[in-house]
Design a protein around this nucleic acid. Structure first.
Length: 558
RNA sequence: UGAGCUAUGGUGUAAUGGUAGCACAGCAGUCUCUGAAUCUGCUUGUCUUGGUUCGAAUCCAGGUAGCUCAACCA
């Protein structure tokens, strides 16, 4: 096999392993703990594991790292499975659970005891910490460290048999209480937890710790490259210690990379859970959440997320990716594929004075000007229309290409109109605009017609469909909500205006929109029919992302 | 202040001892029946100080800064 050239440091390690003969194949795994929903940071890891293995003709397992029954639930298992599939990755028949290995792990633990490399300790709570020492001072040996092997073995078996209360005993590896790496100071391997497990039920009352279970699970599955995030770097010596001490061959290699940080959001599962529980958001799949299910509901496609993961690359240095890159990825895709439709978010009525009452004309508009094969659709044009209120100004600034009294604008796909007058209510609010149209200006009919500066979208008032449209903004008002100074908490940075709801007028073709279908609302952005709250009677659209808005930018500056 | 890791434009990432490149963002222009898209151009970078070398982002040493580690969590 020809070995593809490496494009990041992980692939370099793989290529070198393949070339040196250290490995003959590549096998990775994605090992989520089912204690929360997957987010875009996990997507990076999923993408990394699956595409790296695939590039070198290898395989990837999905393994649930379910060693803590107190925190894990089937709801999360199901959501994780859905999300990985939705992202476009397939683990085939290789869906595993650390809990599948409880028997084997127990056996390995006894082996370690027998080798004199693990012992049962009776230190509790505070005492464990005191004996461990600090970052700068060595720890002390536990008084139980030299307990006879048979005694530890007996105690361990009785722990398993349920004879003791939680916390009374625990199994620890016998390594080095003076080790500069705290993880090597006789770490815990097994603890008593009288808790029902989502898969094994009450079969066990002792559960293995991550540091013990993970390397062995990797080894059992024949994982070659165990890719994880940077915070596990200090655990690598321990990962290796268990495998080496047990004398296992073909040991997997742990490789760490920097986790994804995204500006204006937060990737901590614990804090995302808090947002859900405190009802700051509507749920794990709230379109403002960085979760896979949230992004999905917001209108992101799997391919756009994969593209994002490809573009951010992978390295060992901590970094903060600009959320604009995510926006770019979905815009790029939807610009090519999304059907254009017309919608008005803040409607004002336009009356065409020289248009015959009750008369409608069918006009044809292209579905995607960048893609002829997308075809066209027919829309009715009539006397009363809605346009966006921001497309009219009483005192327009220079270079304003939209409507004002005496001004002229093209209605997309239809006619050029001139604004004649403004009608206001008693409070001075604009009620309607009176305009005239130029019969010679029908779209496409007269190439020599006067060219107008602005073209705006519109919706026929008598055909418009009402809909709720949700506009989303950053969940947090600052780039890095984790970065708090004295007296601040991350919740202080929650953006109170992260969702704005509009009662919009849409063109009638949107009546038949199906959940998760994506559109470009012309000049406004990309929108997606909500998969939860929308119904044929009450349409709900989510704004995935705005269109770039150079005019808005110019406005802001002045 | 013990140990480990990291450091390339505003952001992310390449360059594997030989011309510092790409993308996003930004700016300017072009085009436009979407102020979108397109197209063109531009600004901005090797943390620092030494050393090795004909030649250093890359190798070495010192400094500086950031991150991680003291759950019977993962």
């Amino acid at each position: 096999m020809k070995i593809p050239v490496a494009s990041n440091f992980i692939q370099e390690i793989i290529v070198s392993d393949l070339n040196s003969g250290k490995r003959s194949e590549v096998h990775t795994r994605f090992p989520p703990e089912p204690n929360g929903y997957l987010h875009i940071g996990h997507a990076k890891s999923i993408y990394l594991n699956f595409t790296t293995a695939a590039k070198y003709n290898g395989k990837t397992n999905l393994r649930f790292d379910d060693t803590n029954p107190a925190k894990e639930e089937v709801e999360y298992v199901d959501s994780i499975r859905d999300d990985v599939h939705w992202l476009g990755f397939d683990w085939e028949d290789r869906e595993f659970y650390a809990s599948d290995y409880y028997g084997k792990l127990y056996y390995f633990a006894e082996q370690l005891i027998l080798m004199g490399k693990a012992y049962i300790c009776e230190l509790q709570g505070e005492a464990v910490r005191e004996y461990r020492g600090t970052l700068t001072e060595a720890g002390k040996n536990s008084p139980w460290r030299d307990r006879p092997v048979q005694e530890s073995l007996d105690l361990f078996r009785r722990m398993r048999a349920g004879e003791f209360d939680e916390g009374a005993y625990f199994l620890r590896a016998k390594i080095d209480m003076a080790h500069p790496n705290m993880n090597m100071r006789d770490p815990a391997m097994y603890r008593i937890k009288k808790e029902s497990h989502h898969r094994t039920g009450d079969q066990w009352c002792i559960y293995p710790m991550y540091d013990f279970a993970h390397p062995l699970s990797d080894w059992i599955e024949g994982i070659t490259h165990s890719i994880c995030t940077l915070e596990f770097e200090a655990h690598r010596p321990l990962y290796d210690w268990f495998l080496e001490t047990l004398g296992l061959e073909n040991r997997p290699q742990q490789i760490e990379f920097a986790r994804l940080n995204l500006s204006y959001t937060m990737m901590s599962k614990r804090r995302l859970l808090e947002l859900v529980q405190s009802q700051v958001v509507m749920g794990w799949d709230d379109p403002r959440m960085p979760t896979i299910s949230g992004l999905r509901r917001r209108g992101y496609s799997p391919s756009s997320i994969r593209e994002f993961c490809e573009r951010i690359g992978v390295a060992k240095a901590d970094s903060m990716v600009d959320v604009n890159l995510l926006y770019f990825c979905i815009r790029e895709e939807l610009n090519a594929s999304a059907m254009r439709v017309m919608a008005v978010l803040d409607p004002i009525k336009v009356i065409i004075d020289n248009w015959e009452e009750g008369h409608f004309e069918e006009i044809e508009v292209e579905n995607n000007p960048n893609d002829e094969s997308a075809g066209s659709r027919k829309i009715l044009f009539g006397k009363e229309l809605y346009i966006e209120s921001s497309d009219f100004m009483e005192d327009p600034p220079k270079k304003y290409h939209r409507l004002f009294v005496g001004g002229v604008v093209r209605l997309k796909g239809a006619y050029v109109i001139t604004c004649q007058s403004v009608v206001k209510d008693s409070d001075g609010n604009i009620k309607e605009l009176h305009c005239t149209y130029d019969p010679q200006s029908k779209s496409g009919s007269n190439p020599n017609a006067v060219r107008v500066r602005g073209t705006i979208q519109w919706v026929s008032a008598s055909h418009a469909v009402d809909a709720e449209v949700r506009l989303f903004d950053h969940l947090f008002a600052v780039e890095n909500p984790q970065d708090t100074s004295e007296g601040e908490t991350w919740t202080d940075f929650i953006n109170p205006n992260s969702m704005i709801v509009k009662n919009a007028k849409l063109e009638p073709s949107l009546k038949g929109a199906t959940p998760e279908s994506r559109y470009q609302f012309m000049r406004l952005g990309y929108f997606c029919l909500d998969s939860k709250d929308s119904s044929p009677e009450n349409l709900v659209f989510n704004r995935t992302v705005e269109l770039k808005d150079t005019w808005g930018k110019i406005q802001k500056k002045s």
